[in-house]
Amino acid sequence: MTETHATEAVTPVFPPGRYGRRRAPQRRRPVLFAALVAVLLVVTGLISVKLYQQYGPDYSGEVVSYTDITDSQIRITFQVTVPEGEPARCTLRARSYDGAQVGYADVLVDNPGGARQMTQEHLLATTAKPFMAEVLGCRPVE
């Protein structure tokens, strides 16, 4: 009596023509795949830089201080960063202690000297006593 060892690897034999032609295993190409991924990353990076330069935050504003707070006004001092020589239009808002908007204005920031950063002051009229002021945003003058 002969014994069959379970550890022997036996390749199955299929009847010819019954299951179609067996394919040879294909070689993988990791170098080609890595090169395609690298090219995709470079192209995506270049597109991102181009879009950031075209639509990025060239115009920005921030409040430096607010003073002269009364029941009907607030004086806002804010700093604006723009492309050199360009004017800007900034939107200012005053809020009351409960968060309600009590004052709103679009302010033209002229840039006669062609500076990149400017500080401007604006007296904003309000409908109630303001608690704080903010620059909502700045954009190019159209």
Rank of each mutant, 00 (worst) to 15 (best):
Q54L: 12
F78R: 00
A115M: 10
R21M: 13
P12W: 01
L36H: 11
T77C: 01
K129P: 07
V63F: 04
L124R: 03
R22T: 14
T44A: 15
D68Y: 07
V43E: 09
Y104W: 15
G113V: 02
P30E: 04
A128L: 10
Q101M: 13
T44V: 07
G99H: 06
E86C: 00
V31R: 14
P25F: 05
P30Y: 08
G56Q: 03
V49K: 04
E142Q: 04
S65L: 04
A88G: 03
T81V: 07
P16S: 14
Y97V: 09
A115W: 13
V141M: 02
R23V: 11
E142V: 03
P87W: 05
A105D: 13
D106C: 04
R116Y: 06
V82T: 11
D71L: 03
R139P: 01
E142Y: 04
R89Y: 05
G113C: 05
P25V: 10
Y66L: 01
V13R: 11
Q53Y: 08
V31Q: 12
E84V: 03
S72F: 07
S48M: 09
K50M: 08
R75C: 04
T77A: 02
P140N: 01
T81G: 02
M1H: 14
F14Q: 15
L108S: 02
S60P: 05
V10L: 00
Q120D: 12
H5C: 00
P12E: 01
V43L: 14
T119E: 11
Q79G: 02
P112Q: 03
D58K: 10
V102Y: 02
V42A: 15
T2P: 11
R93Y: 00
C138D: 02
R95E: 12
T77W: 00
E62I: 06
N111Y: 08
T44H: 14
P25C: 08
E62D: 15
Y104H: 14
E121W: 02
V102L: 06
L41G: 14
R18I: 15
L123P: 00
V42G: 03
L36G: 10
A35S: 13
R18W: 15
D106Y: 14
R116Q: 12
S48V: 11
G85T: 01
E142S: 07
G56A: 06
D68L: 04
V42S: 07
L124N: 06
T91Q: 15
G114Y: 09
L108G: 00
A133Y: 01
A128G: 09
S65C: 00
H5P: 04
H5N: 03
V31K: 12
V135S: 04
E142H: 04
V141W: 02
A94C: 08
A128Y: 05
V80L: 00
T91K: 06
K129R: 15
Q101K: 09
L108M: 10
K50C: 07
M1S: 14
A128H: 07
S96T: 07
T67I: 01
G137F: 06
V80R: 00
L136Y: 05
E86I: 04
L92N: 02
